[in-house]
């Protein structure tokens, strides 16, 4: 069992340099980063309705997982799911149209930021709710499509929900191909993990006899190498909890960050974006500007579209 981790307050610097990324990984990371930054700008200008939760600082989690998941796998995402969607489909236009309620929206503008369904990808906005559903999907996959898995993204705060434990119990009992990806960013909305979680994620997984794998690195290549054999075991019916110790760079939603400056500074110092720019400046700058321009183009194009249409009785 590991100790409680409070990454946002931990030592920030002195990590080893990040390894060089494949071009497509870097492009995807930057696409997600600039997508999220653009959203915050749009909100700031009052051009978006409702709310959103950006994954700034956590982009590398779905990017690292991307080649480990196949089209036959289900992915369940949560409120902070833009990166998960973009890593799966690369479809910035459809996602932004969904968030802006414009024509071409993935779900007609009904679901918005946190309720998206496309093929074998589904997100929903209630904490922990998707775990039992994913267990049911994993049960189906084990029986009808052996080798496929159900992956669920949750946060550290999600562990407050009983549904998590009901699902872990069933997943272990029934040997389900269930991969639980925990993005432990050290803070649940405004509450530090230490103030809402007794014990550890590892200890909770161990209580059910479920394997737990801790990822503290933000190095996509390194993470993948570590995860590959473990994910293969999930496909054989051995559920797994992968806990990423990560950093939420931005606010919970928008303009609601009450963390002390040192906590935000620690998150910034751990940010893969700045680190990669420093470790691989040429590679970074070759792709960063174009990614920024691409997302700007998407935003301009989608904003000009007519509103999405939907019939409540459809």
């Amino acid at each position: 069992m590991t100790e409680t981790l409070t990454p946002a307050l931990g030592p920030a610097t002195g990590g080893p340099p990040l390894s060089r990324l494949a071009d497509d990984d870097l492009e995807l990371l930057l696409l997600i980063r600039h997508f999220e930054l653009t959203l915050l700008q749009l909100y700031g200008r009052g051009e978006l309705n409702g709310t959103t939760h950006t994954c700034l600082g956590q982009e590398y989690v779905p990017v690292a997982l991307r080649p480990l998941l196949g089209p036959g796998d289900f992915v369940f995402s949560n409120h902070r799911g833009h990166g998960h969607y973009l890593a799966r489909f690369g479809d910035a236009h459809g996602l932004l149209a969904e968030i802006m309620g414009r024509e071409g929206a993935v779900c007609g503008g009904v679901g918005g930021s946190q309720h998206i369904h496309r093929d074998r990808y589904l997100s929903t906005g209630v904490q922990g709710e998707s775990l039992p559903v994913a267990a049911g999907v994993a049960l189906h996959l084990r029986r009808t499509e052996p080798g496929a898995l159900a992956c669920v993204h949750i946060g550290d705060g999600t562990w407050g929900e009983g549904a998590v434990y009901e699902a872990l119990n069933m997943a272990a009992l029934w040997s389900l191909p269930l991969l639980v990806v925990v993005e432990n960013n050290g803070i649940a909305q405004s509450t530090p993990t230490a103030a809402q979680m007794a014990g550890t994620v590892a200890g909770r997984a161990a209580a059910f006899g479920v394997d737990h794998h801790l990822v503290v690195s933000a190095d996509v290549n390194e993470i993948r190498t570590g995860l590959e054999p473990l994910v293969a075991r999930v496909r054989e019916g051995r559920p797994l909890v992968v806990e990423f110790v990560t950093h939420r760079l931005g606010p919970h939603s928008k303009g609601d960050d009450t963390r002390p400056p040192e906590a935000i500074r620690a998150a910034e110092e751990n940010d893969w974006y700045a680190r990669y720019a420093q470790d691989h400046p040429e590679h970074f700058h070759r792709f960063d500007g174009p990614a920024r321009a691409l997302v700007q183009g998407v935003a301009d194009e989608v904003a000009a579209r007519p509103p999405s249409r939907w019939s409540p009785c459809a």
């Binding site: 039992p132 559903v133 994913a134 267990a135 049911g136 189906h140 549904a163 009901e166 119990n169 069933m170």
Partner: peptide, 21 residues
């Protein structure tokens, strides 16, 4: 399938089964 005493969980599992056809 017999389930643990987890009404929320088993209803979610049923939904997952329904979701997959």
């Amino acid at each position: 399938i017999t389930t643990p005493i987890s009404e929320g969980g088993l209803t979610g599992v049923a939904a997952g089964l329904a979701l997959t056809g």
